[in-house]
Design a protein around this nucleic acid. Structure first.
Lengths: 156, 156
DNA sequence: CGTGAAAGTGGACAAGT
DNA sequence: ACTTGTCCACTTTCACG
């Protein structure tokens, strides 16, 4: 079902459709149709085309972590002994559910991760027990997000 | 409509509902009902309660940036002259659509941002023209994501 | 690429256990 | 808190402009 980049041309209507669904994935086809002024069937047809193009990667419910007591977000730069151990380290990091993102990066760090945890104690435990114990990890540099001011997707 | 944290107790069924919708926000109530083995009306009732609890922050379509030619993700640590200029700097950063995240952080940087752009040239332009020109920005440190290995939400 | 109609499916609510 | 039943809205497909 997934086909990527078939000479995609998105016009103003496509943008309106995508913006509506990027804001609320449950917006009905008919609701979008009302907003853009064409029939529901036409919206549906465009949506199928957008899906086939690979532009739409899926849809997700967004959970508010604070309601579950997860209030601390942190970023961790990880130094690894030797590059050869990188895939193994990633494999271990995947087992830690608090790790929301993991990137290979340029710069001093081998790996850069984003962590969501309950509090500083939880963070300390993750760093000292889970992350530092991964083979190849020599050192980490952590900085905590005091307040996230911007959170958004690519602009369509 | 938004009420936060009314002594939330999510059981196994709630978790299954949330996991299904976090994977695909368009999963129908009846489909979830089939998966967990109770009626659609019961799922619907639980969903309304979860929404009222504030745990569900919304739903979003996920766009694949690569299809639009956005292939370069970078992280930028921003040094600001004086803390007093932080809110102003954030205000300016909000005007740059390529800035997907912006955090106040502990550590050497005042602000930490995540950027999505088309290529290195685009990134260079953003850094030199858009970000460095913000009043109060003295210096930036940039590292590029070579490959994102993990991308997920909080584990329910 | 668009429309409108028709058929199937899901969402929302009521009443009962 | 879950079930069944009902009604209406929405999705999806189709023949056609």
């Amino acid at each position: 079902m997934k086909v990527i980049n078939q000479n995609i041309h998105i016009d103003g209507i496509d943008k309106k459709i995508l913006r509506a669904l990027m804001t609320d994935a449950r917006t009905s086809v008919l609701e979008i149709a009302r907003q853009v002024g064409i029939s529901g069937a036409a919206i549906h047809q465009r949506l199928r085309k957008l899906e086939k193009s690979g532009l739409i990667a899926g849809s997700k419910f967004i959970i508010n972590p604070k309601v579950l007591g997860y209030t601390t977000m942190a970023f961790v730069g990880v130094y690894l002994d030797k590059a050869v151990s990188n895939p193994d380290a990633v494999k271990q990091l995947k087992k830690i559910p608090e790790v929301l993102e993991c990137h290979y990066t340029t710069g001093n760090w081998s790996i850069f991760i984003k962590i969501l945890c309950k509090d500083n104690e939880h963070l300390m435990h993750l760093l000292n027990s889970d992350i530092q114990s991964i083979s190849g990890v020599s050192r980490t540099e952590t900085f905590i997000s005091l307040d996230q001011q911007i959170e958004r997707q690519i602009k369509i």
